[in-house]
Design a protein around this nucleic acid. Structure first.
Length: 424
RNA sequence: GGAGAGGUGGCCGAGCGGUCUAAGGCGCACGCCUGGAAAGCGUGUAUACUCCAAAAGGGUAUCGAGGGUUCGAAUCCCUCUCUCUCCGCCA
């Protein structure tokens, strides 16, 4: 969430930012409400603290009087303290109530977009940041989509997933499973080469963790929830990886912290049924290698560029046509200040598929996470970033479709040593 | 799952109703000492909120978390949580 102090001191910027996210008059009032409530909280707290100080002083006096055997005088003071205590209780309630309401409202305010974020309402308005300037593969009439290729070559089976679990839980098998594992290894190796530390995190997280990275309360209902133990299945490795540093004070010299991890990702995808969900386009469980960075605020945009270069490099090596979009204010995620999406061309479906989303959250996540470092001026919040590098299911879809030939499916050279075969 | 023992500052560890404003030690930083270092000595060593125009300096809270008893809680009571030991189950 936004820093309260930032809202207080940069109200105009906050409002401009919200306008870029298409907030208008009525919705913008929340900012003034927050400041007013916080004023009330401060006033109550100051008074309460003063009363507490007085109580403390008197209690000590009573202790002294008891030791001198002056019971009567002590009794008189006791009454005075009791009176003060009643007032303190009221003030505390006022303060806690105001603080809670501030917190609640703050959770409803999204991150302020970076100045480069284009105006716009929907994905239609996203800016093509880097277009694909070479020709797209032309497969001819008999090209078939990846779900048919999967059946033809026995690569994955969605019906089998339905039998075992339900719709959207693919079963990979044979060369399909091998390809999946090859891609995971390839992505992890590349991330490690780029200086990311490999992590194997828990796949379920507690509420506190999901809150800290912003999945809750924003995406309640999109995560699988294990009620018996109060766990959430992770929708992305971002959650456990970033939470490694929750409540940590980091040494400035340890920046940039770079983590990578492969995990399956679980998403309920409630309310997103439609024609674009066939095959691997949208599933409830998919594999992904994530990269996460925790960095000094001065360098976060440089690091963001580094992440773009990293993801571009992966797609280049996989020989997939792709483009990069800069998301507009209306399409950007709640917690992000700037997001770039990568889309690969799916030649049989003749459409772009999102395979990566790379974002800088600035201090929005770290404020909830409380990831801080100390510099000359005191405690400061770090910046957090993350990106998919990459999401597997759709990469598989594109690889299969784009490389199909009448004689089989060719695989990009970089994967040969990982798969142990050059074609399917 | 059952039984027991515990969670105190960056770390170890004392404290078990008032002087805890948390002893002592280690570590760390700075200074003195030294040709330089070690040792020794001295000083300092958290976080959040808040008061003050700011600095300096105050105030409040935090001894796993939350609640309670009390004029006063690290200390007593309740709930939760985590760790350790033993037993059971188990890849």
């Amino acid at each position: 969430m936004l820093e309260l102090n930032f809202i207080r001191t940069h109200k105009e910027r906050v409002i401009q930012g919200l306008q870029l996210r298409n907030y208008t008059g009525e919705n913008l009032k929340v900012i003034d409400e927050i400041v007013a409530l916080d004023d009330a909280r401060k006033a109550a707290q100051t008074e309460m603290d003063n009363n507490l100080a007085e109580t403390k002083r008197l209690s000590k006096e009573i202790g002294g009087l008891f030791q001198q055997g002056k019971q009567a005088e002590a009794g008189a003071l006791k009454e005075k303290v009791s009176e003060l205590k009643a007032g303190i209780k009221t003030l505390e309630t006022t303060m806690m109530d105001a603080a809670e309401r501030v917190e609640k409202l703050l959770l409803t305010v999204p991150n302020i977009p970076h100045e480069s974020v284009p105006a716009g309402k929907t994905s239609e308005d996203n800016e093509v940041y880097r277009a694909w300037d070479k020709p797209l593969p032309n497969l001819g009439e008999d090209a078939i989509p990846h779900w048919e290729l999967a059946t033809k070559y026995n690569l994955f089976d969605l019906e089998l997933g339905v039998k075992i679990t339900g719709a959207g839980f693919p079963v990979f098998r044979g060369k399909g499973a091998r390809l999946e594992r090859a891609l995971i290894n390839f992505f992890l190796d590349e991330a490690t080469k780029a200086g990311y530390e490999e992590i194997i995190p828990p796949l379920m997280v507690k509420e506190e963790s999901a809150k800290a990275t912003g999945q809750l309360p924003d995406k309640e209902g999109q995560m699988y929830y294990i009620g018996e133990d109060d766990f959430y299945m992770i929708p992305t490795a971002e959650v456990p990886l970033t939470n490694i540093y929750r409540n940590e004070i980091v040494e400035e010299k340890d920046f940039p912290i770079k983590l990578t991890g492969y995990t399956p990702c679980f998403r309920r995808e409630a309310g997103s049924y439609g024609s674009d969900v066939r095959g691997l386009n949208r599933v409830h469980q998919f594999d992904k290698v994530e990269i996460v960075q925790i960095v000094h605020p001065d360098t976060s945009y440089d690091q963001l560029n580094g992440m773009l270069a990293h993801v571009s490099g992966l797609l280049d090596k996989l020989e997939l046509p792709y483009r990069i979009l800069r998301l507009c204010g209306g399409d950007m995620g709640f917690t992000s200040a700037l997001t770039f999406d990568f889309e690969v061309w799916s030649a049989a479906q003749k459409r772009w598929l999102e395979v990566s989303s790379v974002s800088n959250f600035e201090t929005y996540q770290s404020n909830r996470l409380k990831v801080r470092f100390k510099d000359g001026k005191g405690m400061r919040l770090a910046h957090t970033l993350n990106g998919s590098a990459l999401a597997l299911a759709r990469i598989v879809a594109a690889l299969l479709e784009n490389n199909q030939t009448s004689g089989g499916i060719r695989l990009p050279k970089v994967l040969h040593s990982y798969t142990g075969f050059e074609a399917i």
